[in-house]
Amino acid sequence: MIKKTPKQSTLQGIKSLFVGLRVTGHNFVMPQITTHYPRQEVDNLVTYRGHIELVPKEDDPMTSKCILCGQCAKACPSNCIELVIRKEEVEPPPAAEAQPDADKEEAPPKPAPKKKVKRILEAFILDYNLCSLCGQCVQTCPVDSLEFSTNSYLAGFTREEFVFELLERMRKKYKASSSG
């Protein structure tokens, strides 16, 4: 539908100025709609997706759900996730159970449930300086061990303050919630 732009006579034009003034006057007496940060805060931060946090296991809040597969680090477009993994020799489980898993041990990066060398998550480092909040890590995680925080009021003086150790954050958060 191709229309013509409506033309305006001078009289209509002058009238438009008063109509505009009426709108301005109407809005002048309307309540304020802005939020005066820091005295006030916006109330819709629940839906904000900030940097990621580790999700603890339900039965053990001090360890995370992470299975150390490294998918998140691979998926990240800006390489801001680093998993620090400690390998620990553990007692081989009873022979009957260890046998079926013997083949799987050929591929060490795949986290098999039972192994002679146990891999333990030492630290989960997020370099928030580089993060673009795309959420690829959360989507690729096979066990939902990552979630978004709603922390939008982050500020700091140095870059180092934005390199987070998520495992420690998770534990601190639990301690704070259990003590408080």
Binding site: Q8, Q12, G13, S16, L17, G20, V23
Partner: peptide, 18 residues
């Protein structure tokens, strides 16, 4: 419609864009 009253029909705007 408020936008129309306030701006689109405004004579001053018309002179700047017509």
């Amino acid at each position: 419609p408020m936008y129309k009253d306030l701006v689109t029909d405004n004579m001053i705007l018309r002179h700047r864009v017509d």
